[in-house]
Design a protein around this nucleic acid. Structure first.
Lengths: 195, 195
DNA sequence: TGTACATCAGTGAACGCGCGTTCACTGATGTAC
DNA sequence: TGTACATCAGTGAACGCGCGTTCACTGATGTAC
């Protein structure tokens, strides 16, 4: 069943996985449909059974990326004991994800066509939930939850994008991410300075 | 002199200008050396007299972009009457520039090879100067000027990148930019709330 | 002022490229009876 | 349980593509004497 020529079984998933790997190795340019097919052990035209064209495969990879990002940040944030700590940990995780998957991160945020997925929406919702959580605990003033979520997201996305593209030194971005998030939370009036 | 076949006179500059225009029309992918040459009214091989390869032309375009960005933000910031206002106006100008030149902005921040120019350094220095200015005026506490500059830059760069790639609604990013910068400045302890 | 020559800045033909995509096809699977 | 047939998921050859880049070249300019 694993190596039958016909009826691969889960080719769609396999193609997305190979595409993600190739993307990490060779960048968006290097992610060719033919090489992805080769790696999946399938003919060059087989992908067309599952994706309309190369762009559709890229969109699927981006969607999967948003899923991974949302899961990673949520998991890391959950380990914090205070609202501030959860926000800080989630933020740092976002940048770490970007630095670990630079080309995937670039793809995800390289145009409007890549964030029209349930996964992309979920990754935004993660920020809203962290803020809601901080407001519910009484550490953060209520109101304009969305605005606060987008402000924090913008900040940490900016750190991530600058770091990924080499504008911030390797030894600086972790400290900058923490300090900048702290500054912004303070500006929002967040109480409870505990780490 | 304008239309002599040989010895164009200022071909290098013309090529960068055409490349920037083509980039705006067709994106990075669409910016082909041959089309740039065609638009400059020159043979397809002429660009090689001035640029080692396509990548070198892209780098020149990015450098020019950083120059434009630095000039635009500095000019707009200079119109503010208080330190807070200058920081706010410079920030908004940064996002406006990105929204007016989305593909140029994407190119400029699409990899480490595009910010190794004097212009790129100057555009970062603009932030340092705005912060230094705010500290000198006594509105902002001294110390860690670079850290503060990079924090603010990260925030506004994040707003710009998210807006450019369609993650923020058209009617929201100007308000978000203003509000988020205000929040961060407040977190930094900036006094003088005047607009 | 004129001539010889080096240098500079273009030309235009040609190569090679892997790629995305279309096409008509065939082998494997599932279902109705 | 067997057979007929529809459907699904692959194959492999072929086309066309504009592109980046190399090459040997030629026309224009500047300078030494």
């Amino acid at each position: 069943m694993a190596t039958t020529a016909y009826h691969h079984g889960d080719l769609r998933r396999a193609l997305v996985a190979e595409a993600r790997g190739l993307l990490a190795e060779a960048g968006v340019q290097g992610m060719s449909l033919r090489e992805v097919a080769r790696r999946a052990g399938v003919s060059q035209t087989a992908p067309y059974r599952h994706f309309e064209d190369r762009g559709a495969l890229l969109e699927a990879v981006a969607a999967e990326g948003f899923g991974s990002l949302a899961r990673y940040t949520a998991e890391r944030a959950a380990g914090g004991r205070s609202a501030r700590s959860r926000l800080r940990r989630g933020s740092l995780a976002y940048v770490e994800f970007a630095m670990s998957n630079p080309d995937l991160f670039r793809l995800m945020f390289s145009g409007p066509e890549f964030h029209e997925s349930a996964e992309a929406r979920a990754s935004y919702r993660a920020w809203v939930e962290l803020i809601t959580d901080a407001q519910a605990s009484g550490d953060l003033a209520g109101g304009s939850t969305g605005r606060k979520a987008r402000s924090l997201w913008s900040l940490i996305h900016g750190v991530a994008d600058l770091a990924v593209n080499g504008h911030l030194a390797d030894e600086e971005w972790p400290r900058l991410a923490g300090a900048a998030v702290d500054t912004m939370l303070t500006g929002m009036g967040l109480t409870g300075m505990g780490a």
